[in-house]
Simulated assay, not measured.
Amino acid sequence: MPADGHRRIIHVDMDAFFASVEQRDDPALRGKPVAVGGSSGRGVVAAASYEARRFGVRSAMPSVTARRLCPDLIFVKSRFEAYREVSRQIRAIFGRYTDLIEPLSLDEAYLDVTADAAGLGSATNTAKAIRADILAETRLTASAGVSYNKFLAKLASDQNKPDGLCVITPGKAEAFVASLPIARFHGVGPRTAEKMARLGIATGGDLATKPAEWLREHFGSWGDYLYGAARGLDERPVRSHRIRKSVGAERTFTDDLSAPSDLLAALDPIADAAWERIARAQARGRTVTLKVKYNDFRIVTRARSFADPIADRAALASAAAGLLAALCPMERPVRLLGLTLSALDGARPARPVAEDRQLALFDAAPAPICGT
């Protein structure tokens, strides 16, 4: 840790990644509203271009809803191998600047650049160099957030999207967090935001007035996270080398779901996302777990273990469908479904940690400073 006690963390997030790859590879799609995903009645939008987002189209939205919002929306089928190839290019770029890389998905990652391995003088300069390399080598844009912890860096990367850079310095963090709408906090979905509104919480500043005990009473163990987040606190390190215990995906729905057919349809893209991560991690696991969060925030899980590792996406989806069927009819509407594979015996670890060297300043060069 540097003498000032602050890490230098960058969160890099590709802009509308899947849709941008499709627009890059097919000139006919450029400048047009594009959705990656199924266009059938049960289809779900996996990603939307910024042109589509202007109409309100979002990922995880039912395709019929997206089409209603944007009649000219162009649907294209996902090409995960193409996305994985670009992700490998991006990961290689990250590796030029640090060994401390924590991927979150194909299109985003945390980087700890406290060591300044590239000798650029600041985390801001490093973020600029990474974004320039990504643009030059992939013809895609990325947004980046720079701060002293993961929570703030992730907030910052979303601040000036698309193709933006935002730096939150220690002196600006408190005011920045206080001014944020509560829906901007990572993990706060529409239903949670509604609950907070009923409790008189509209901004980070409102959240910061609540004692830890009060937050635990209303939000359970998640209250501890909220208490720290409201104060810009996050001690989690960037973990570039860790043992995987499970691999999976989850999704919070725009509207709560109750009908078994709707829940089964919603589970399908989650299985796609989970299997993509499982394949990328080269993981082999024997236990499939279904997570269900009701609209009152209670969570239930159901799991099934198999004698042999899950062989493919179809086997994962079949196991998940069986677990879901056992819970139906649901006792309450569902706001989130998740699917994980555990009891792993072959997950690929990330790269080893490099030695730290101190980085003197956040802002050796001018950069957009977020906050008030």
Rank of each mutant, 00 (worst) to 15 (best):
L106N: 09
V188E: 01
A92M: 02
L361M: 08
A47W: 05
K293I: 07
A123T: 02
E174C: 02
A144W: 01
A279P: 06
G346E: 10
R231L: 03
R139H: 14
G248Q: 03
R313G: 08
A115W: 05
Q23N: 05
F306L: 12
G338M: 01
V36K: 11
R242N: 01
S143W: 03
A229R: 14
R58M: 03
A229Y: 12
R351P: 01
L165V: 08
Q23F: 01
P33S: 12
A178D: 00
G223Q: 10
D116I: 03
D26F: 10
Y110C: 06
S246M: 03
E355K: 12
P366S: 10
V76L: 05
D26G: 04
F306T: 06
L290H: 03
C166M: 13
L199K: 14
A123R: 05
R244D: 14
N160I: 00
M61C: 03
K128E: 10
H6A: 08
P33A: 10
R91M: 14
D4G: 11
R58I: 00
Y50C: 10
R298W: 05
L267A: 13
S342F: 00
G121A: 02
A266W: 02
G95H: 08
V34G: 05
F17D: 06
E331K: 13
E81F: 05
R79C: 13
A115H: 04
T114C: 11
G205T: 07
A82F: 04
F151S: 00
G322E: 12
Q159R: 11
R79S: 13
A118G: 12
Q159D: 14
R332K: 15
N149V: 08
A19Q: 09
L327G: 13
M196S: 05
V76M: 06
R332E: 13
V44S: 06
A48I: 07
A307T: 15
P33K: 09
A48L: 06
P62Y: 04
A47L: 07
D234R: 07
R191N: 05
V45D: 02
A320F: 05
A320N: 11
T124W: 02
K128M: 15
D15T: 04
G145C: 11
F297T: 03
E85F: 06
G346R: 10
C328D: 09
V76N: 01
I299P: 05
A281C: 11
T98F: 01
A175G: 12
